[in-house]
């Protein structure tokens, strides 16, 4: 049967309806994650290349140590937030799962292809309640995939001052896997830039998408509501 998933209460032609899509844990995750990535990347830049030259004697200067403390603190916030998001993948509504790459479904591949064509041809296809396949793939690769890699390499580096401690026992295996401590550092830097690439693409595409599709995309990450018309696609049933 070829039943396409439509929102249950489709508005009449020419009218918008709105639906509560992003539950509050998703929104909280998003903004904490955005803040953590921003702080982690900028503090990481300083740790990589400490350009400040504090005057005075080391007994009353603590610049590098402070920046590292900020980096570690936000790393822990990032980890807890990340675990929280994974928990909500299972506990949330279907939109919380709609970004998953359903690679075994033809409909997912078709949506992926169509979304790319729509973006490239600057045309307007269907709105999606939840994620379209391309967006979902990007979030899976850049937020979840890179997140895992960055957490593992980061915690492995964090554990280096105490290899027999809790973190060393938990993720110390990353270092022999990468080959050496230096290799872990190099990967950590490469992955960090992945977040920058993602942020550039992400910020642009949500502005473009919100403007082109008039779906209230940006405000939806604050209010949780997305706008749709008749004939738009509802992931609530599309992915389940």
């Amino acid at each position: 049967m070829s039943s396409i998933s439509r929102p249950v209460n489709s508005p009449p032609p020419g009218y918008f309806a709105q639906k509560y899509v992003w539950q509050w844990p998703i929104r909280v995750f998003h903004w904490i994650n955005a803040l953590a990535v921003l702080v982690l990347f900028s503090s990481g830049l300083y740790i990589w290349n400490p350009i400040l030259v504090p005057a005075g004697e080391p007994w009353n200067r603590f610049v590098m140590a402070t920046v590292r403390k900020i980096h570690f603190a936000f790393a822990m916030i990032f980890v807890v937030n990340f675990v929280w998001r994974i928990y909500w993948f299972w506990m949330g509504n279907n939109y919380a799962r709609s970004g998953f790459p359903f690679v075994w479904r033809r409909s997912w591949w078709r949506d992926l292809f169509r979304q790319m064509v729509d973006y490239l041809k600057l045309e307007r296809g269907h709105r999606h309640l939840g994620h379209n396949a391309l967006g979902g793939l990007a979030y899976t690769v850049f937020v979840i995939g890179l997140g895992w890699l960055q957490i593992l390499t980061g915690l492995a580096l964090y554990s280096e001052s105490n290899p027999d401690g809790f973190w060393g026992t938990l993720v110390g295996w990353v270092i022999p896997l990468a080959g050496s401590s230096m290799a872990v550092r190099v990967w950590h830097h490469l992955f960090a830039w992945g977040f920058i690439v993602f942020s550039i693409l992400h910020v642009y595409i949500v502005f473009y998408d919100g403007q082109q599709y008039r779906n209230g995309l940006i405000s939806s990450m604050i209010s949780g509501y997305k706008f749709y018309e008749a004939d738009d696609i509802d992931h609530d049933t599309w992915i389940s």
Partner: peptide, 16 residues
């Protein structure tokens, strides 16, 4: 001019 939304009856076939 706002581009038209895609025609629902055409290419959205979904065998979910």
């Amino acid at each position: 001019k706002e581009s038209k939304p895609a025609d629902a009856t055409k290419d959205t076939g979904d065998e979910a």
